[in-house]
C-alpha cells in the first residue's frame, strides 16, 4: 500500500511539471521547430555541457589518483599490462578530448540563425579514406602490441621451476593446496569430498600425499595464502559449485573457476607485502582509509594483498575473500615447512 503512495507522488510530480509549463505560457508556441533564440541558448549551453564533461574528466582523473590501485604492479606480468594500459589510456584521452571538442564546438558554432545557409557537403572520398586508414593503422599497432602482451602474460610454458598452487572456490570461501615436494598436484574431484577432505583430493593418487592444504593461521584463525617473491606461480583453479573468479587486482591477474574443469593463470610476484606497504601510493591510500575509518569508529587496517571473487556466485558474493602474503623465498620456504601435508592432516 505504501508503494502506491510513492507512485501517486510520482504522478503528482508529473502533473505539477506540466501545470508549471502551462502557467508560464509555454504551451502556446506557434513555432514548431526551434527558434533562433532557442538555438542560441541551447548552442551556448552545449559549450557548458562540454566544459562539464572536461571538468568531470579532470576531476575524476585527479580526484581518484589516491583511491586507485597502487601504481606499482605486484608481479612481473603487471609491468607489461600496466605499460600497455598507460599507452592505451593516453591514446583514448587524446582522442576523447579532441572529438568531444569538435562535437560541441561545431554545435555551438553552427547553431541555427536566421541568415545561415548550410553547406551542401555530401561526400569526400579523400577524407573518408583518411579516417578509415588512420584508425586502421593505430589499431594494427594496438593489436600487435596487445597480443604480444597477452602472450607474455598467459604463456606459462617457459617458466623455470614454477610453484604449483591449486585455488579451490566454493560458496563463499577460498581454499588452496600447494603441490608439495614433487610439485605435482594429486588428482581431485568433488566425488572424493568427505569429512576433512574438503577439496575432494583423490588420496589413492601417488602425487596427493605430499600436497599441502592451506590451513588457517593459528593466531588469526584466517587463511593466508603465502607466495614467494621472484618465483613464478602457476595457479590451477577449480570450483566446487558455481562459477567463481579468482581476482587478484594488485597482481593484475584474474581467471574464472569453472566446475568440471581446471583453469590456469600464472604470475611472478615481484613485490613483497612489506615492500608494498612501504610504497608511497599504498601509504597515502591507507592513511586516507584509516582517517575515514577512525571517523566512523572502526579499527585501523593495514595493506594486504587480496584475492576477491569476481563472478556473481550468490548472496555472499560481495564478501568472498582470501588474504595473500608475498614474502622473500627463504621466508616462504620456512613457512611452507610448518604446514602439514595431506598424508599428515587427513
Amino acid at each position: 500500500m505504501k508503494a502506491l503512495f510513492y507512485i501517486i507522488i510520482g504522478v503528482a510530480l508529473m502533473v505539477v511539471c506540466w501545470q508549471l509549463v502551462k502557467l508560464l505560457g509555454l504551451t502556446k508556441k506557434e513555432n514548431q521547430t526551434a527558434t533562433p533564440k532557442e538555438n542560441d541558448i541551447n548552442g551556448k549551453l552545449m559549450l557548458v555541457l562540454m566544459t562539464f564533461i572536461y571538468v568531470l574528466m579532470v576531476l575524476s582523473l585527479w580526484g581518484t589518483r589516491e583511491v586507485l590501485l597502487p601504481q606499482l604492479g605486484a608481479s612481473e606480468e603487471a609491468y607489461h599490462i600496466d605499460l600497455l594500459f598507460k599507452y592505451s589510456m593516453a591514446l583514448i584521452l587524446v582522442v576523447q578530448f579532441i572529438l568531444q571538442a569538435l562535437i560541441f564546438w561545431f554545435t555551438f558554432k553552427y547553431r541555427g540563425t536566421e541568415g545561415r545557409k548550410a553547406y551542401f557537403f555530401a561526400d569526400s572520398h579523400k577524407l573518408e579514406m583518411w579516417w578509415t586508414i588512420t584508425p586502421a593503422v593505430v589499431l594494427a599497432g594496438m593489436i600487435i602490441y596487445g597480443l604480444w602482451t597477452w602472450n607474455q602474460v598467459m604463456d606459462a610454458s617457459d617458466a623455470e621451476n614454477p610453484l604449483i598452487i591449486e585455488l579451490y572456490a566454493k560458496q563463499f570461501q577460498w581454499e588452496a593446496r600447494y603441490a608439495g615436494d614433487d610439485n605435482t598436484l594429486g588428482n581431485a574431484n568433488v566425488r572424493f569430498i568427505e569429512g576433512t577432505n574438503t577439496m575432494g583430493v583423490d588420496m589413492s593418487d601417488k602425487n596427493a600425499a605430499d600436497d599441502i592444504a592451506l590451513a588457517p593461521n593459528p593466531e588469526t584463525f584466517l587463511k593466508e595464502l603465502h607466495l614467494p617473491k621472484g618465483r613464478t606461480v602457476i595457479f590451477k583453479l577449480r570450483s566446487q559449485d558455481v562459477l567463481h573468479s579468482a581476482y587478484m587486482p594488485h597482481f593484475r591477474a584474474q581467471m574464472n573457476c569453472v566446475p568440471g574443469m581446471v583453469t590456469q593463470i600464472k604470475y611472478t610476484p615481484s613485490v613483497t607485502t612489506e615492500e608494498m606497504r612501504a610504497y608511497p601510493d599504498t601509504k597515502t591510500k591507507f592513511e586516507n582509509i584509516n582517517a575515514l575509518r577512525k571517523s566512523q569508529g572502526k579499527e585501523e587496517v593495514e595493506f594486504d594483498y587480496l584475492l576477491l571473487c569476481n563472478k556473481i556466485c550468490g548472496a555472499s558474493h560481495y564478501n568472498m575473500q582470501l588474504k595473500i602474503i608475498v614474502e622473500e623465498e627463504a621466508d616462504f620456504n620456512k613457512w611452507l615447512k610448518t604446514q602439514k601435508t595431506l598424508a599428515e592432516s587427513l
Partner: peptide
Amino acid sequence: AFNYITTLWRGNLQLN
C-alpha cells in the same frame, strides 16, 4: 563517429 561530426560542420543546426 567522424561522419556525424562532419555532418554537424557548417550546418545550420536546428537545436530541437
